[in-house]
């Protein structure tokens, strides 16, 4: 196998799936760092976003990319709503209770998707897309869109977090919640903002997963483990770490089939997760350990 083949069949698909994981992992890492619990409904929220986009595509007949903003807004609203209705009153209880509630929410979101859209696999556009040839590299348009959208969204988020007043407030809450509250930061607004960002990114992750593969009701749940592995690999609380972690997990999954049976590809994320917890729980970029 020559080098180009390695790039075409393993590295490029790895970067694409890694970008999708990165979009999910950024949300996970923000919730983990600011609200301080592992949000287990993240994958199923991504499924919901993907199917909302499908409803827009099939209902209005627009192109999938035009449906993405609608899905982002809708899923962000759902995320804020879930927090208001189900998580808010658990805030004074031990955080692990909210983790349990989020497992229940995962089941609820999944069953809503199954009631409205059924359990059959679906796609945004029918037919096979042939990849274009760039100097021997075979890349599909949608793969370019996926990576570009990820860089754009995460870049915008990074600017927001470092430059704007509310972004700084979010980082302050992540670094030291007591100090942040003492200095007058409105906790409620930070929580809502976190959910808007995490929900929107979730929808984008689900949408691009559906665009590059297919839509099914379990697509998000199977993404949960790689996304958590990516967040912990990069360092909890570090946005750029989540992107790095997502890309590494994605490429590692695709490359793993060179050595292990392809049935166990989904196990790579778990191996990476345990390995990081064992040797460097702070992650590559020195995040926090809860």
């Amino acid at each position: 196998m020559d080098f180009l083949e390695l790039l075409n069949f393993y590295v490029i698909p790895g970067i694409v799936i890694g970008s999708i994981y990165a979009l999910g992992a950024v949300g996970i890492t923000l919730i983990f760092a600011i609200l301080r619990y592992a949000h287990l409904a993240h994958g199923d929220l991504a499924t919901l976003g993907a199917f909302v986009a499908l409803a827009v595509v099939s209902g209005l007949g627009v192109s999938p990319l035009a449906a993405l903003p609608v899905a982002i807004v809708a899923t962000a609203a759902v995320a804020v709503g879930i927090d208001k209705v189900f998580y808010e009153h658990l805030r004074e209880r031990p955080k692990i209770v909210t983790v349990m509630a989020s497992l229940g929410i995962a089941l609820m979101i999944r069953s809503v998707v199954q009631v409205f859209w059924g359990v059959d696999t679906q796609t945004y556009v029918r037919g096979i897309v042939r990849p274009e040839d760039y100097f021997g590299l075979r890349i599909r348009d949608r793969e370019i869109y996926t990576v570009l959208a990820m860089l754009l969204l995460v870049g915008a988020l990074q600017v927001f977090l470092t430059r704007s007043k509310w972004g700084k407030a979010m980082r302050a809450m992540s670094d030291n919640p007591n100090l942040a509250l003492l200095s007058g930061i409105d906790n409620k607004k930070v929580v809502v903002l976190t959910w808007v960002i995490a929900g929107g990114l979730c929808a984008a992750a689900g949408f691009f997963l559906g665009l590059n593969t297919e839509l099914k009701s379990l697509m998000g749940w199977s993404m949960l483990l790689p996304v958590f592995a990516a967040a912990i690999l990069g360092g909890v609380g570090r946005v750029e770490g989540a992107v790095l972690g997502g890309l590494i997990v994605g490429v590692a999954e695709e490359l793993s089939v060179l050595w292990i049976p392809s049935e166990y590809k989904a196990g790579m994320a778990f191996v990476i997760l345990l390995f990081m917890l064992l040797v460097r729980p702070t992650g590559l970029l020195r995040g926090k350990v809860l």
């Binding site: 983990f32 619990y37 592992a38 287990l40 955080k95 692990i96 983790v99 497992l103 949960l224 483990l225 958590f228 912990i232 994320a269 778990f270 997760l273 345990l274 917890l277 729980p281 350990v289 809860l290």
Partner: peptide
Amino acid sequence: FRSDYLAIASIG
């Protein structure tokens, strides 16, 4: 670590 990590690993 905190129990959140066990939750994720047990799903894994």
